[in-house]
């Protein structure tokens, strides 16, 4: 009895697989170009680009404040910049350019 039941379930599963595969093939070949796949796919989180993780930039401790341009008054008032000396206001604290 159990074997019969299992055989019935297996037949159902295989019938489902066959039916679904046929539908997918038809859908892929049709002009809709597979858009039928979306109808039972669930909640769409979209095809957005996730931010690229890798680059070779140095990580700025004043991120989001436009960096530290020569006219900036430093990166004051941000926790992430505390105690790091902020930005030079005119670069004068760096050594003068050492060009030959």
């Amino acid at each position: 009895m159990k074997n019969q039941l299992n055989a019935l379930l297996l037949t159902a599963a295989l019938a489902g697989l066959t039916g679904g595969t046929t539908v997918a093939a038809q859908s892929a070949n049709s002009a809709s170009n597979g858009s039928a796949h979306f109808t039972n796919a669930g909640l769409n989180f979209g095809s957005q680009d996730t931010p690229a993780k890798h680059s070779c930039k140095g990580k700025n401790d004043c991120k989001g404040q436009g960096g530290c341009k020569s006219s900036d008054q430093g990166c004051k008032g941000k926790n992430t910049c505390k105690g790091k000396g902020g930005c030079a206001t005119d670069g004068s604290k760096m050594p003068k350019a050492l060009f030959a």
């Binding site: 379930l9 159902a12 019938a15 489902g16 796949h37």
Partner: peptide, 29 residues
Amino acid sequence: MEAGFADSRIPAARRAAKLQQWFKSWAEL
């Protein structure tokens, strides 16, 4: 399939239909 229906409340009579529906949907995807 056995693992799926262990402790299931889905009546035995409806399981084949459910299975067919699920596998069809998964194959479509």
